[in-house]
Structure formats: structure tokens, C-alpha cells
């Protein structure tokens, strides 16, 4: 029997998802023995034309990481979708937009303006910017178009499953691969991680008071942090209440709060909204009913950059999706 064909591809990402696969170490043996890798541009010398030559649906599963923000990436994922029976969005960027998705607070013009014109170290008196088609003395050179908006994978193609995390941890990768190889899969659209929130799995959960109440918000870099105690109970914003579990509490292990790279649990429709309402619900300030508007505003202002914090990993997949731009 022939082995199932597997493809790996990366879009606007950092390479961390590729490292995550490499960090499987000896476990990857099981994977490579069971499958035939037909595309992995970072590791093996296969070209796009090899994929084009395949029959539709010939690839059993494509793992695609990174968000989609250039023409080249879009064409490639559309091609892989046609050739694959199953597509797995691998890692935060493909799943929910990831950190590069923060670029949806700006657009192509804004990025170009900053990078090629106003950057303190750039000397560009004639206002040159990269172009998709350039004539040089010897011929023509092309670059892929850079889009205004960062897209999650399921905003451009149909996605079957999601492997969350920045980057996904080894055990979840192996669980997913095993489930695929054994044909033991949950319904389409499932996020292949815990159903619980990170809070529910957290070692510090026991330190969380029965009724969590805080009266002020502190910033982690300006606060002594108790390494045993729930961050929220210390007044430090931790997004573990809203975030899907399964990460192994990696950041909490380093005594730092969660920033939501696993995206929301199944019950949560919009990560940022839910996070904000959760924080609001644990505020309990003496005499809050009598607070003036000014005092309320001051309290709200104490949450610096709420959009960037609550949507840090998930802006492109949120109901906001992007900032509205003039042009």
C-alpha cells in the first residue's frame, strides 16, 4: 500500500512552526515512516511545478502555517487546497492571524511609509519603494504583491482542522498526526487541542480565590510577581480565562502571563470581547456604583492598548478583523 502523501507549506510566518516540527526529534521518525512528504520547500527540493503536476486530491493532508498576505502565498494555498483531501491550519498565524496579524492595525501604505520612508535609519531622498515589476538594465525583475490585509488561512481557503499555538507544542502535533493516520478524526472544523480553558488547566488555579476580585490593574514589568499565585489575583492581566488550553502552560512556567496564542475556547465567539468582559466582571471597587464618569474613564485608561493586548494574536480572525483605513 502506498503511503499517504503529506505537504508542508509556510506563508507569512517566522519559521517557528518549522522548528516545532524539527523539535519533535525522534518522534518524527514515526511520521516519516508512515507518510511520503511531497512538498516541504524549506527542507526538500520540491518546486511548485511538482505540485501542479499532481492530480486533484492526490495529497492526503497539507499542513500550512503562516498568515496570508502576499499574492504568491494566496496562489500557493489555493493550489494546495485543490490538490489536498485535507488542510490543517498549523500554528497561530494560520489559525487566528498571529502576531503578524497586528499589521491589520495598518495597511500596505502604512507599512511601506514606515519601513521605506520614515524609519530613523533609512536614507531615501528620492522616495523609492519596492515594486512588483521593475526594469533593470539587464532585464525585468518581479516581486509578489503585498496585500493591505493579513488573512487567516480559513479566510482564503476551506480549512478542515486547526492546530493552535505559537508554535504548536510537540505533543499536540503528534496527537494530530496520529489521529490523521488512524483516520480517527473529530468533526471538520475542530481545533485539535484541549476543550478546556488554560485557566482550568493551570497549576496556579488552586491559588485563585473562590470569587476573583481585583481593584486595580498592574503591568507585569512594574510589579513583583508571586511565582505561585494566579496572575489575575495579583491584578496582572492574564488571558488564560479565554484561551484554549493544551499549551502546557509554557509562559506561566516562566512566570509570565498568557497572551492567548492558542486562540479562544469553543464557547467564545470573539476573543477580545470575551477577555474584556471577563476582566470587567472581576473588578470590584469600593463605592464603584457612585463613581463619577471621570473616575470611570481613569479606570478604563489604566488598561493601556486594549486592542493590541486583547487581540494580540487574533486580530484578523476577530469581529474587528482590521482597522478601517481611509484608503
Amino acid at each position: 500500500m502506498s503511503k499517504p502523501k503529506v505537504a508542508f507549506y509556510w506563508c507569512a510566518s517566522c519559521g517557528g512552526c518549522e522548528e516545532a516540527v524539527v523539535d519533535l526529534a525522534e518522534d518524527i521518525l514515526k511520521v516519516v515512516e508512515a507518510v511520503e512528504i511531497v512538498l516541504w520547500p524549506v527542507a526538500l527540493d520540491f518546486k511548485r511545478k511538482d505540485v501542479e503536476a499532481m492530480a486533484d486530491g492526490e495529497i492526503a493532508v497539507s499542513f500550512i502555517n503562516g498568515a496570508v498576505r502576499t499574492e504568491e502565498q494566496l496562489e500557493m494555498v489555493e493550489l494546495l487546497r485543490r490538490k489536498s483531501q485535507m488542510v490543517v491550519a498549523f500554528g497561530s498565524c494560520a489559525h487566528i492571524g498571529g502576531i503578524p496579524g497586528l499589521a491589520n492595525f495598518s495597511n500596505r501604505k502604512g507599512v511601506f511609509e514606515r519601513v521605506y520612508h520614515t524609519s530613523e535609519s533609512t536614507s531615501n531622498p528620492s522616495g523609492v519603494v519596492p515594486k512588483t515589476r521593475v526594469t533593470v538594465p539587464e532585464g525585468e525583475l518581479t516581486l509578489p504583491e503585498f496585500f493591505d490585509t493579513v488573512n487567516t488561512l480559513d479566510q482564503v481557503i476551506d480549512v478542515d482542522y486547526y492546530l493552535p499555538g505559537c508554535a504548536p507544542p510537540a505533543d499536540l502535533i503528534m496527537d494530530a498526526v496520529t489521529a490523521i493516520l488512524e483516520g480517527n478524526l473529530p468533526p471538520k472544523g475542530t481545533v485539535l487541542a484541549s476543550k478546556k480553558s488554560l485557566c482550568d488547566e493551570c497549576d496556579r488555579n488552586d491559588s485563585k480565590p473562590e470569587k476573583l476580585q481585583i481593584s486595580e490593574l498592574k503591568r507585569v514589568h512594574l510589579t513583583e510577581v508571586d511565582p505561585e499565585k494566579c496572575f489575575l489575583a495579583q491584578g496582572i492581566i492574564c488571558l488564560g480565562m479565554v484561551t484554549r488550553g493544551g499549551c502546557g502552560q509554557r509562559c506561566v512556567n516562566a512566570n509570565m502571563p498568557c497572551r492567548g496564542c492558542f486562540g479562544p475556547t469553543d464557547e467564545v465567539k470573539d476573543f477580545g470581547l470575551k477577555a474584556m468582559s471577563s476582566i470587567a466582571s472581576i473588578f470590584n471597587i469600593e463605592g464603584e456604583k457612585d463613581m463619577s464618569e471621570e473616575e470611570t474613564q481613569k479606570l478604563i485608561d489604566s488598561i493601556v492598548d486594549p486592542a493590541g493586548l486583547f487581540y494580540m494574536y487574533n486580530l484578523p480572525s476577530s469581529i474587528l478583523r482590521r482597522r478601517k483605513m481611509e484608503d
Binding site: 507569512a12 498576505r69 502576531i99 495598518s106 502604512g110 509578489p144 497572551r259 493601556v304 494580540m312
Partner: peptide, 21 residues
């Protein structure tokens, strides 16, 4: 052929998040 624009989208963020961004 790639650009992500970190210099731009870092604007507005909390400084303490930069080592994580």
C-alpha cells in the same frame, strides 16, 4: 520577496510586550 512590517504594527503596543512580539 517578503515583508511583514514589524516596525509599523509595533506602534501603539505596550513596551513590555515587545520582547514577546
Amino acid at each position: 520577496p517578503e515583508l511583514r512590517g514589524f516596525e509599523k504594527f509595533s506602534e501603539g503596543r505596550r513596551a513590555e510586550e515587545m520582547p514577546r512580539i
